[in-house]
Amino acid sequence: MVLRKLLASLIAAGALNGCAMMQSVQPWEKDLLAKEEMQLVPDRIEEFFDSRVYFSREAAFGGKGVGGGGCGCN
């Protein structure tokens, strides 16, 4: 049922596109979005350290992409 919930939320997000209220952002309006710091993972090493530390200290993991982990953490 989590899956179902999720699909519903993904479909809702997809529907945002077709939503008449939302104007699609034009390429020349992407000056802010094109900045390096607007990337989803602006600092890979920071991201790596975080995922590594928290992966070894908490039960939950992942979410940003596939894979990750791979340590015999005590």
Binding site: L10, V25, K30, L32
Partner: peptide, 8 residues
Amino acid sequence: ITQVLTRE
């Protein structure tokens, strides 16, 4: 899914 919502 990644979506540009607005200019910001």
